[in-house]
Design a binder for these strands. Structure first.
Lengths: 214, 214
DNA sequence: TGTATTCATGAATTAAGGTTCACTATGGCA
DNA sequence: TGCCATAGTGAACCTTAATTCATGAATACA
């Protein structure tokens, strides 16, 4: 017999509550609070209940990562797909990503750079890969239409992704001031620089445009 | 009474052997083999002996990191200090670093990107920072003499360091036999791209030169 | 209302390796 | 040769959370 809809709803909701408690804990104070017992209590369930919804701690956090990361990758993907020159799209994508990351600094820091358990760390790689993948598409477009220098798109995408992520980590550090104007300036610098390595000369004059709920 | 020279030598040598066993283990198969008991046996000493030389596992690996990293940072520092345009030095520094990293691919991956325990991961940050620091010096020089665009040297250095590190070890990093022509070509691409983001236009035509026991 | 099934509980267990320490071996020295 | 300081030993001990599971509660359905 099929499970009643009400009950199914309950299950889905509980799982969501656990996921959200996990996300919130990491967003608030990083991986040190990413303990099953703590998350369970925050979610209002027993420790053991977490294991009704997730195979393991690694599985739980893989899903947390997916939840958060897929949104960010989607934002970037939307910009990648958008109208406009590849150059402009690239700058906008990086700028938007940076601004969003700085907005949720603690979480972004945890997701990108904070030392954490190897198993969780491994799950982050997928996110980086997915992001680099989006960049790579843009790079190919720019190479194809002559906007970008003609080099290996995957290497180029890695360079670009590495550049802005590494540069972001500093400003994302938990101690850094979340000042908005300064943050935008930094994001602009990062976007400008990261994209710049691909530009044919002379480089276009571009002002980053924040897009998609930046 | 002072300890006899022979005996002191013995101590230094044993410590070196442990350090080297640790380095070798990581270079061979990464952090999963970075276990005290295993390292001890590889070094031909008992588990407990490791603790006569190192305070903790984290301390041991911090020293391993220092050992390897300081050499690499020194290589880069030498190029940074060398004669020549900032542009040429930058390309050479990245190229040399890349070629060396590809030569010790497994170790480089472990030191730069492989998921590992948080405590060890934290120690890696120093290395990254030191490297970025060297790049930053070069960036300042290039900005001062008008070779580079005028932006925040620290942000720029982070971008550059992030770019080549990610491209070297990232998920998309191309596989290539060390010292092969393909490897050199990739290193050249990485160096060219990473440095390119700083160049004023038109960009100089530069061929990377391998320096300092590249 | 009875009962089968599913879900929730949280204390007890497990696991994995880092760390300790009581003991032994060694080398320098008188 | 005997003594002492120091290095070496490795099995036992800890620590820290993740994970389990026996038990109880709740729900759906006849």
């Amino acid at each position: 017999m099929a499970i009643a809809a009400v009950r199914l709803n309950q299950l889905v909701e509980t799982k969501a509550r656990i996921l959200d408690a996990a996300r919130a804990a990491v967003a608030l104070s990083g991986w040190k609070d990413a303990q099953i017992a703590l998350i369970a209590s925050r979610a209002g369930v027993a420790t053991g209940s977490v294991y009704r919804y997730f195979d393991s701690k690694a599985d739980l956090y893989a899903q947390v990562l997916a939840l958060v990361s897929e949104r960010e990758v989607a934002v970037v993907a939307a910009i990648v797909e958008a109208e406009g020159s590849a150059s402009q799209c690239l700058v906008d994508a990086i700028y938007t990503f940076s601004v969003r990351a700085m907005r949720g600094r603690r979480l972004a820091y945890a997701l990108i750079a904070e030392p954490c358990e190897p198993e969780i760390d491994a799950a982050r790689l997928k996110y980086r890969a997915a992001l680099a993948d989006q960049i790579a598409r843009l790079v190919r477009r720019g190479i194809a239409n002559g906007e970008f220098v003609d080099i290996d798109a995957n290497v180029a995408a890695s360079c670009v992704a590495g550049a802005f992520m590494e540069a972001l980590v500093g400003p994302l550090a938990p101690e850094a001031a979340p000042d908005s104007d300064a943050a935008k300036a930094i994001a602009q610098t990062i976007a400008g620089l990261s994209a710049r390595m691909l530009f044919r000369h002379p480089a276009p004059e571009l002002t980053p445009v924040s897009r998609v709920s930046a």
